[in-house]
Design a protein around this nucleic acid. Structure first.
Lengths: 200, 200
DNA sequence: TCACTGGTTGACTGACCAGTCAATCGGTTT
DNA sequence: AAACCGATTGACTGGTCAGTCAACCAGTGA
């Protein structure tokens, strides 16, 4: 009895190594052997657990994106104001980056923004996020706390685009990324989209 | 006399073919032979005019991006309100897409958002755009028409991120792209960032 | 002790393609 | 008409990997 000890271990080890290597070199210029080396595992073992190099990235993306989708839908269910819901969404994404910048870098750079490769593959999942955000906005309009003359889909794309652009800025060090910056970003993101940059 | 007729012709022909092929298949999965075929030109001629496949894309990007930078700086010089400047910027980018969607697709997908490859290479040029937009915002704060509690760099990233996300939406057909949509987008973009989505 | 099974190893192969280069072409000059 | 020269051609090469596979190893059960 007490048979299976390692099976999940090594798989996880490979995934975690892949995060580091993808983040460091980018998906395209990492060789499968780089992943194996980083994981301290033989080349062939990668193919024991995954049917291709692509599948490794797909797995990393789907694992994390489903968390994001849950978080968005979760915050939508809580009985809070639409604005607070947007704050929760921005907060979750920013915290995801703070907690695991390498994984978020991989997801954004290699999937979400890689429109010709993995972005295409995961378009449906990605759209689900846009749609959930759009729904929050639409509900806000219903409740008369958001203007009705801005299309919810449009607002959703702007909001999400702004978030992703910020993360990109952090990832590529074009803007500072301290804990204070992260916290400010959360509230500024929502302040900007809800209140605008003109004084009230 | 009257010597040189074709030299620029073929080069342009290759660049234009590259736009179409890159837009259709993505940079990575287009072979140099695809470009040559599309241009109706021999394989080797591509290497007569460009020193590598990369250089073809670099040329396409730089050609267009310098126009964008000029347009931003141009609109900053005109004696108009900061808000009108942002409108001009959004308008220029949206019109660029309307006028030449294939080229804009290539630029955004393969350079601007390809942070691990060409985005890195052109980071300085890309930053110049962010900086110019940030300057518009900073001047607006100076003139007391924009709130001072939102960092200009932050506002610039949000604004540009929103624009790019919209273009991405059009490119990948997740949102409708008619002439009306383009025109609405221009004003909504600025309305959102300046006024916010909450009613005033 | 000995088969059995599933995890583990890494050398090898087949396909692909960017970039090279020697040959050819067509127009110009002397 | 002969030498010249830049544009043009496309077959070929060298290097790179993703993915395969046959062998190996360790734990288990009989």
């Amino acid at each position: 009895m007490a048979s299976k000890a390692p099976p999940i271990d090594k798989r996880r080890q490979i995934l975690d190594a892949a995060i580091r290597v993808f983040a460091r070199q980018g998906f395209h210029s990492t060789r499968v052997s780089d992943i194996a080396d980083e994981a301290g595992v033989a080349y062939g073992l990668v193919y024991h657990y995954f049917k291709s190099k692509d599948e490794v990235l797909n797995e990393l993306f789907s694992e994390r994106w489903s968390l994001l989708l849950s978080a968005i839908e979760e915050s939508d269910r809580g009985g809070i104001s639409p604005r607070a819901k947007l704050e929760a969404v921005a907060g979750f994404i920013v915290d995801s980056y703070r907690h695991d910048p390498e994984l978020m870098k991989v997801i954004i750079v290699e999937v979400t923004r890689a429109a010709n490769s993995f972005g295409r593959t995961h378009l449906a999942e990605i759209r689900r996020a846009y749609d959930s955000i759009a729904k929050i906005v639409a509900d806000g309009q219903e409740a008369e706390v958001f203007r009705r003359d801005i299309d919810p889909t449009f607002a959703s794309m702007s909001f999400y685009g702004a978030i992703e652009q910020l993360l990109s800025g952090w990832i590529f060090e074009v803007i500072p990324a301290s804990d204070t910056d992260f916290d400010q970003a959360k509230s500024l993101l929502v302040a900007t989209i809800c209140d605008g940059i003109e004084p009230r």
